[in-house]
Amino acid sequence: MTVPTAHAILASVEAKGVFVARHRVAVVVLGGTFVLDLAVAVQAFGPRPSVFSKIRDEPEPPYDVFVCGAALTPTSLGFTIGDLRPVEWIVDADTVVIPGLEAPWAPQNPAVVEAVAKPCSTGARLVSLCAGAFVLGQAEVLDGRRVTTHWALAEEFREACPRAHLVEHALYVEDGQILSSGGMLAAADLCMYLLGQDHGQSYANDVSRVLISPPHRTGGQAQYAKAAHRPATGSLVPVLNWLTDHLAEPLTLEDVAARTHMSPRTLVRRFRLETGESMSGWIARRRVERAWALLEDSDLSVTKVAYAAGFGSTESLRRHFLVHIGTSPRSYRKAFRPRNSTLAARQVPARGPAFLSGDR
């Protein structure tokens, strides 16, 4: 049995002459709100640009969108937004969207935080974009919930919201009425998902055609994350440095233990104590980091990258890449080293008209 979309149900009811209020979306603006997140939310749920009529006939937008917050709120880019609906409008919204913001761990406007929490008790949908998840944490609606945020804020989020279950590298996460997206442009992924849930995948696909953006991306934030460079400390620093310099070689526990003049058992214990992970896990992660650097910066084939990083085979590289990055090495290279487009740009003639007229 085919389940009708919300759009189809609304059209049917309106055809019978029954008034139906449109879905109300409140987009919350706090001090330091990321302008990009705000724009994505308003563009996704607000009125469509005129070019949309070439794709789909839509007499009225399916949502009423209100940008809410305290008057004269500064954004992340320094300018101030003054034309805002009152904070009280948040309480009656069907969907509340909280864009990311600078210093999200800092205490936010209490009136706004209280207004964000109230719709949760009435079954409204709460949506955080990027660091907006911190605001949901302050509203105390994340206890026991699965949630994500920008990958680079994972440590701060765990400290600020210890009772939430962070899905660190997801593009977006849905847990009942709470939905959250990862960093920055993952907001578009979540908004397209919501449009598909509300009005059918075909509708979301048409909106994505206007945005020139895929309605769904594979993988997660892990393919965009970059390891923080933290200086090693502790007695194992010389060992860690040596391992980093010899990643391309076979590295067994017994060989490394012999080199450090420790028993394998002692090395295992010391490694876990000083790094927080096993030696094999540490080596695998460093090899993945070496591989992604080579995929971005070198012309080596995927097979040569696998051996240069110490995996020994393309299958081993692929397996570890899927675990740590969430995508394949080839897909990663296409995303972060688009050689075809670069080559095409280089081949554009400097004197186009002369070239077309035959001057070669």
Rank of each mutant, 00 (worst) to 15 (best):
K54L: 02
E155A: 15
L185Q: 13
L84A: 04
G352N: 07
A291E: 06
A26E: 01
L236H: 04
E289R: 07
L129T: 11
H199F: 08
K334A: 14
R209A: 03
R24G: 07
R217H: 06
E277P: 04
P231L: 14
A225T: 11
P119W: 04
Y203M: 10
T303K: 06
P61Q: 13
A70V: 15
G234K: 07
A354Q: 13
V173P: 09
V67P: 02
L247I: 05
S213Q: 11
R209K: 01
P215N: 11
L84Q: 04
R318H: 15
S50F: 11
R56I: 05
A41R: 07
A309V: 13
V96D: 04
G220C: 09
V112N: 04
P353E: 06
S357F: 15
G182L: 03
R285E: 08
A160R: 09
M192I: 06
E102K: 02
A258Q: 09
R158D: 13
L142K: 06
I178W: 01
A228E: 13
R286H: 13
L84K: 02
A257R: 07
L84R: 08
L142P: 02
A6W: 04
L300T: 03
A284G: 02
G137K: 06
D175E: 01
I178K: 08
S313K: 13
P264D: 05
S341Q: 15
V127L: 05
D189G: 09
G17C: 06
P74Q: 03
T327H: 12
E114M: 02
A306W: 05
R269T: 15
G31E: 12
Y63M: 03
H320V: 00
A350Y: 01
A187Q: 03
V91M: 06
